[in-house]
């Protein structure tokens, strides 16, 4: 198990390096920060001066290594727009995004896994139909529209929940539902399919033939095996929630990292975008690493090779 974890961690670091390299080169190609920083009225000489000042005239390899060296010590550079440290900026926005993402993934799993299991126990039953309906809805409803409906219902008409902001836990209820409900269908369908497949296996028949009670058969013997692909999917979904909750954050005016990403992209704020890409990709990498470790713990065939 230890060796497996070590191997996977090494791999994760390599992936992180590759991602940062690719994103750095893409940004390098796509925009010239000197023009953006100098402003519309700047002369060619001004732009050239800025280029030299910030070191944009050096080769891409030198710039990347320079950035990497600083990034390793936690210095992601200064935001061109906010004029503060990028790392500070991200750290400031992250708790909001983290809270939202965590709540949303817990909501999604809490909704999707029990529904998926229930649907698999009685395929084509009422519960299965309801679950299918909910998942099609979740997949088809645009989140911005769903968010507005919730706001109209709970904030404007019923006045139960605040419309926007991030001051109390009540502010997080609607964003959590919107974001979580969007992620739930995939998790639910995968749980259902996995459970259906596992429930027809020989070892489930063995468990029944041993006289084990249905809950033990279902939750110990079946779910343990069916949940393995779900863990991987949930990790990716969680990563998506942390990085891609821009729409939801914008609607509910939650000033999280996703909102920051949108701001910096529109303002050509290169160091911030670069820093956010690094942060988001690190999330993904860490989450998949955690998912792999959970799976190794669940499935001895991965653990003992």
């Amino acid at each position: 198990m230890f060796f497996y974890a070590f191997k996977r961690s090494l791999l994760a670091i390599l992936v992180a390096l590759t991602v940062s390299m690719i994103s750095f080169s893409l940004l390098y190609i796509s925009s010239d920060p000197a023009i953006a920083m100098a402003g519309e009225t700047a002369s060619d000489a001004d732009i050239e001066a800025i280029r030299e000042l910030y070191g944009f005239d050096r080769s891409i390899v030198v710039q990347y290594l320079d950035w990497l060296k600083k990034a390793a010590s936690g210095d992601l550079g200064k935001s061109y727009y906010f004029r503060t440290d990028v790392s500070h900026l991200i750290a400031e926005r992250l708790p909001t995004t983290m809270t939202l993402g965590l709540c949303a993934i817990i909501f999604a799993i809490g909704l999707a896994v029990p529904l998926g299991v229930a649907a698999a126990i009685r395929p084509n039953s009422i519960i299965d139909r309801v679950a299918l309906f909910l998942s099609v809805m979740g997949q088809a409803l645009p989140s911005f529209w769903f968010a507005l409906i919730l706001i109209v219902l709970f904030s404007v008409n019923l006045r139960w929940l605040p419309v926007s902001g991030s001051d109390t836990w009540l502010h997080f209820v609607m964003p959590t539902i919107v974001l979580g409900y969007y992620a739930a269908p995939a998790i639910m369908r995968l749980t259902r399919t996995g459970m259906l497949e596992v429930l027809s296996t020989d070892y489930i028949r063995t468990a029944r033939a041993k006289g084990l009670r249905p809950p033990v058969v279902l939750f110990k013997h079946a779910l343990r095996n069916a949940i393995i692909p779900v863990v991987s999917l949930a990790a990716v979904q969680f990563g998506f929630m942390l990085g891609g909750s821009i729409v939801v954050e914008t609607i509910f005016a939650l000033h999280g990292a996703g909102f920051l990403a949108w701001e910096s992209i529109t303002r050509n704020d290169l160091p911030t975008v670069q820093g956010l890409i690094l942060a988001f990709s690190l999330f993904y990498i860490i989450l998949t690493l955690i998912a792999d470790l959970i799976n190794a713990w669940l499935d001895p065939r991965i653990r003992i090779s």
Binding site: T201, Y203, R205, T206, A209, G211, L212, R224, N225, D299
Partner: peptide, 25 residues
């Protein structure tokens, strides 16, 4: 019946390769 199964009547299946749960010792 579940009190009878595995207790008074035991069953051995055809497929030893798949009849044991892969996730448990």
């Amino acid at each position: 019946m579940s009190d009878v199964r595995g207790n008074k009547i035991g069953m051995i299946f055809q497929e030893p390769m798949t009849s044991l749960n892969p996730s448990f010792t």
